[in-house]
């Protein structure tokens, strides 16, 4: 009967974590509207999340677009429908791959570092120091990071999609010699504004997930350097899984 007990404990812990995370994200959003507004913290977070991740996200987008163009051109060639290569790449990138790949990349680059930073501050009692100075740590540390993720991930996602379509264009039109006019015409006739909007909404939700999970895991770190390492790993794993699961439900909801 020991496994029943441990299973129950695990379920309780998971539920507890989800609840605590939700509370934390609500708190951080509430602190948005209460002064003092810490513009510098927010601006730094924007730079770290957005500008810092631009390179890796566009690189991911470009190569994803290129590979998709090669593979879909190969498949479509079998029944002479190469004109659909651009459409396929653009649709897949704007609906699914753009948001998900951007989310995963930002998780790896930004989520881990947020968790480490806050985790280290926690185990070295810097957060307690903030409290003694009457600074709310949620407002000082969490709010700017979560908000920066919510704002920057959609922008990164959009750039990723555009660069990906550019990569597909290079491979399909310049490399494989498909018709340039047909490539773009099919994209603009088939891809609807809602496809792009759905990707942007997804990306914003992923931003919220990354920011909240990373801050929460950092906040929970305890027991020195090892605890910080564990918190970082958990932040990346949970964010990635949460992105994939949320993506499925958002797709079901939106289409």
């Amino acid at each position: 009967m020991k496994w029943v007990e441990s299973l129950g404990l695990w379920a309780i812990r998971v539920t507890e974590s989800i609840g605590a995370m939700t509370l934390m994200s609500l708190q951080s959003l509430l602190w948005l509207f209460r002064p003092p507004f810490r513009w510098r913290n927010f601006l730094q977070a924007l730079e770290y999340v957005g500008v810092g991740s631009l390179g890796i996200v566009t690189l991911t987008g470009a190569f994803t677009g290129m590979v998709m163009a090669i593979q879909s051109a190969y498949a479509f060639k079998m029944f002479h429908a190469e004109s659909l290569v651009g459409t396929t790449v653009a649709l897949a990138l704007s609906r699914e791959l753009g948001p998900v790949l951007t989310g995963l990349m930002v998780t790896g680059r930004v989520g881990s570092s947020i968790a480490t930073e806050i985790g280290t501050m926690n185990v070295t009692e810097q957060i307690d120091a903030l409290r003694t100075m009457a600074v709310n740590p949620i407002q000082y540390l969490v709010t700017p990071r979560v908000l920066a993720c919510i704002i920057m991930v959609p922008i990164l996602c959009q750039l990723c999609t555009l660069v990906g379509v550019g990569g597909a264009y290079l491979v399909a039109v310049k490399g494989l010699g498909l018709d340039q006019g047909v490539f773009f015409d099919r994209i603009v006739t088939v891809v609807q504004p809602w496809d792009v909007w759905s990707g942007i909404i997804k990306a914003a939700v992923f931003g919220l997930v990354i920011g909240t999970v990373s801050c929460f895991k950092g906040y929970q770190a305890e027991g020195g350097a090892r605890g910080v390492g564990v918190a970082t790993t958990q932040a990346v794993v949970i964010s990635s899984v949460a992105i994939l699961v949320t993506d499925y439900f958002l797709t079901v909801l939106m289409f």
């Binding site: 601006l43 924007l46 730079e47 957005g50 500008v51 631009l54 920057m152 959609p154 922008i155 959009q158 750039l159």
Partner: peptide
């Protein structure tokens, strides 16, 4: 940098 990023977006 942030301004440029916003503009690019």
């Amino acid at each position: 940098l942030v301004g440029l990023m916003m503009l690019a977006g």
